[in-house]
Design a protein around this nucleic acid. Structure first.
Lengths: 225, 225
DNA sequence: ACCTGAACACCGTTCAAGT
DNA sequence: ACCTGAACACCGTTCAAGT
């Protein structure tokens, strides 16, 4: 404590946008969305908060870059040229798993509509639809529907409570709806109450895949023009 | 300016949770999400910021209550008992229009997964699926898919730029992707570039409806078990 | 050119003091 | 019981000063 004052000195290699994004992802993954601040980031980088602004315009850009960095890993060129639903399904599940592994990514994708990461998913989905042979007329509709579906799931799972499967039906409903449920019994929410077991027991990933299949089945059925 | 100091005095009727939520919605609608702070709210209510905490636990609860207040208006009992896709479609579009009219609602619904407002939409969708005669085995899948789809669209449109239809293709892409597009030409994003016209010209609402039809067509086709 | 860190203009939330 | 508004513990962002 009686250490004499001395200025910090500039040890350390130069900062870079890529390095900042990498550390930001580490913080987001390890400690969650709220833990990422310019102060915490600067501390981890042994620098001042202001230094970051020399490489990243602001926090939004930082989050978009972090999202793009992760998404670009899964949304690459289709590996198969065989026309089938399988490659579309596989891609959608890859995106799902990525969000599952990085919860903050869900909120980030849902936040800004045409950020780079979202565009990459749209491109990847579209590429596979072209290979699958979806007619030109329906491509845009199907790609949009799949994109919006995965973004909805992203936001949903990102904030979800990850209920242990052991939890029983009534306890689950209580957890999920808080005291709100007590205001609304089976008479007011018949459907929700009839689905309580599925809500408590369902597997998020399987559920997600079922929705993808529904959209692809609709695409195959060629809906009304 | 030489007015003598005097304490504010307690004119005004008592605060209430409902009144606070009403004024919060007014601020959100008129000035957007960022404009709603406990300070701005308190000013509009001619009170201190702390007073609000006697009626609302925190800002999250306030936003959830605001969302529920709006959603409860559209997600009421089905008006028709005729089994058809039409009532499902109509409900989905009502939710879409509600989000369109209150942009902040999109982000709010996408933010917290099982808040009251989301549960109300799930219930309303489910009720109509039961009437339509979707088999018990598929009800949960179809309701979940529709819910996630509308939440994805909600987040997307909430933040969307609302591009005037007059804007041309290249200008649109520039607006939407920023300088990111300049890094990625048609070789890297073939699908996005091939869809550029649809992206620029499409009608959000019609697009949304097309996705709903896709899911309903998939439900009718009875996807793989 | 890049970095540093104090300063600025905000937040949500708390809490002693009033009525 | 309810209200008031200053105070607290934060933010993102800016900017003079250093190297």
């Amino acid at each position: 404590m009686s250490q004499s004052e001395q200025r910090p000195a500039r040890r350390r290699e130069a900062l870079s946008a890529a390095g900042i994004v990498r550390v930001a992802i580490e913080i987001l993954d390890a400690e969650g969305e709220d833990a990422l601040t310019f102060r915490s980031l600067a501390e981890r980088l042994s620098t001042g908060a202001g230094a970051i602004y020399h490489h990243v315009a602001n926090k939004d850009e930082l989050l978009e870059a972090a999202a793009e960095s992760l998404v670009s890993g899964v949304a690459s060129t289709p590996e198969s040229l065989v026309p089938s639903d399988e490659s579309v399904r596989a891609l959608m599940l890859e995106v799902f798993d990525l969000i599952d592994a990085h919860r903050w990514l869900g909120s980030q994708l849902a936040r800004a509509p045409w950020q780079a990461a979202v565009l990459l998913v749209f491109e990847a989905v579209g590429d596979r639809l072209v290979i699958r042979g979806v007619s030109e007329r329906h491509r845009f509709d199907v790609a949009s529907a799949l994109l919006q579906y995965v973004l909805g799931a992203a936001g949903q799972y990102a904030a979800s409570l990850r209920i242990p499967t052991a939890v029983g039906r009534s306890e689950f409903l209580k957890t999920v709806t808080g005291d709100w449920t007590s205001r609304a019994g089976p008479e007011e929410l018949p459907f929700v109450h009839s689905m309580a077991r599925q809500l408590a027991d369902h597997d998020d990933r399987r559920q997600f895949a079922a929705g993808v299949d529904l959209i692809l089945a609709g695409a195959a059925a060629n809906p009304r023009t």
